[in-house]
């Protein structure tokens, strides 16, 4: 139980970084983003509708990403999200902060195991 709680906190803390990273290269729709997180983390990280969309909308509301309806021939329109300039800056900060954090944690936890 305690471990599960810790994982949830980790997931919450990194969720923004994950979404921004996935949108860095190209625009994607919501389902695609959550699927990619699941696939690339090999199932470790999963988002359901309830946890994912509030997060997505908050990112949009803060101006880090922007969504827009895109229609493709023969398909229903979907809402695609892309990173804004501001979002890119935030991503860069998050990324280095994350690397620092992980590095620091590894240095400590790694030493303990050595």
């Amino acid at each position: 139980m305690r471990v599960k709680g810790f994982a949830r906190e980790l997931k919450k803390g990194s969720a923004e970084l994950l979404i921004l990273s996935l949108l860095e290269q190209r625009a994607r729709h919501g389902y695609e983003i959550s699927k990619l997180i699941e696939q690339r983390s090999e199932g470790v990280l999963q988002f359901n509708v309830a946890s994912f969309y509030p997060l997505l909308y908050r990112l949009e509301e803060r101006g880090f990403i922007e969504g827009r309806w895109v229609e493709k021939a023969g398909q229903r329109r979907r809402r695609y999200y892309r990173v804004t300039a501001e979002g890119r800056a935030v991503l860069k900060e998050h990324r280095s902060a994350w690397a620092n954090f992980v590095g620091a944690v590894n240095r400590i936890t790694g030493e303990e195991h050595a």
């Binding site: 359901n48 509708v49 309830a50 946890s51 969309y53 509030p54 997060l55 909308y57 908050r58 509301e61």
Partner: peptide
């Protein structure tokens, strides 16, 4: 999936981004 929709955290999480704008 229906349960997810009724999840209190979901609705609470939606409120700020949707209402503020």
């Amino acid at each position: 999936l229906s349960e997810e929709l009724r999840d209190a955290r979901f609705l609470a999480g939606l409120r700020p981004p949707l209402e503020r704008r």
